[in-house]
Amino acid sequence: GFPRFKSKKRNKNSYSTLCINGNITLSNGYLRLPKIGQIRLKQHRFVPSEYRLKSVTVSQTPSGKYYASILFEYEDQVQEKEMQKFLGLDFSMHELYRDSNGKEPAYPGYYRNAEKKLAREQRKLSRMQKGSNNRNKQRLKVAKLHEKVSNQRKDFLHKQSRQITNAYDCVCIEDLDMKAMSRTLNFGKSVSDNGWGMFTTFLKYKLEEQGKKLVKVGRFFASSQTCSVCGYKNAKTKNLALREWDCPQCGTHHDRDVNAAINIRNEGMRLVIA
């Protein structure tokens, strides 16, 4: 059967085991693990015969689902591509990002949409007696709601990062401290709902798989204050409420986020070419 985890304190249980002398095998829809035996599984992708199995991590989610993450070793030579198409991304609290072409992904805000339902189910859970069967059933219901929001977010971020990776050779972003930003600006829920850190992680490994690059511009680079046309620095843009402004020097009208994304792209190009 399934492994039984001993810890009652952690809400996500997992254990890892190394492949030694062929004690772990994957064949015909079954995974054989040491001390457990054969387990039937749903395999998500085909594994080439030349891949060498190294280890397996079995985990259980709070909703009660089991997953086996299998690590393989293989040789792969990635050829670096010539950097021709550049894109700049500026973090946005509501749309996830604005790019240097003025486009935005229209992020749905999955946590915000499910917030009322989550609050209602969590209130029910808090009123139930600890250790009772009804509390355990309600705990699973809350865990499934959180898991659904998490899966929706991951699906959206994977699709967005794949579209960008296929279209551009180099993506430039700011090196932001998201944890500090959520604390200082009191935007914790919005920052967590966007999943910017997860998005940049997805973007990085997808680009590297194709020989492309993710360039991070320093967090103190004045992307929002600088005019992308003439280079004039406008100190008034330190006020986050100012979303649009006109350059006093060249007269160009700027959207704050698009202008920042263009500056990030230009600075990333400078770093790559240098």
Rank of each mutant, 00 (worst) to 15 (best):
R4E: 10
L18Y: 06
I24G: 03
L31P: 04
P34F: 08
I36D: 01
Q43I: 12
R45Y: 08
F46L: 13
V47A: 04
P48K: 04
P48S: 02
S49Q: 14
Y51A: 00
Y51W: 14
S55D: 08
V58A: 12
Q60I: 06
G64L: 06
S69F: 03
D76K: 15
V78K: 13
M83C: 12
Q84E: 11
D99T: 02
S100D: 01
N101L: 13
G102R: 09
N113Y: 09
A114G: 00
E115F: 10
K116H: 11
K116S: 14
K117V: 05
A119K: 15
N133C: 05
N134Q: 13
N136M: 11
R139P: 00
R139C: 05
K141F: 06
R153L: 04
K154N: 04
H158W: 09
K159T: 09
R162F: 10
T165C: 13
L176Y: 05
K179Q: 11
A180M: 11
N186D: 13
F199N: 05
T201Q: 14
Y205G: 02
F221V: 04
V229P: 00
V229Q: 13
V229N: 15
C230V: 13
A235P: 13
T237E: 03
R243T: 05
W245P: 03
C250I: 04
D255N: 15
R256M: 07
D257F: 06
N263C: 08
M269H: 02
I273A: 08
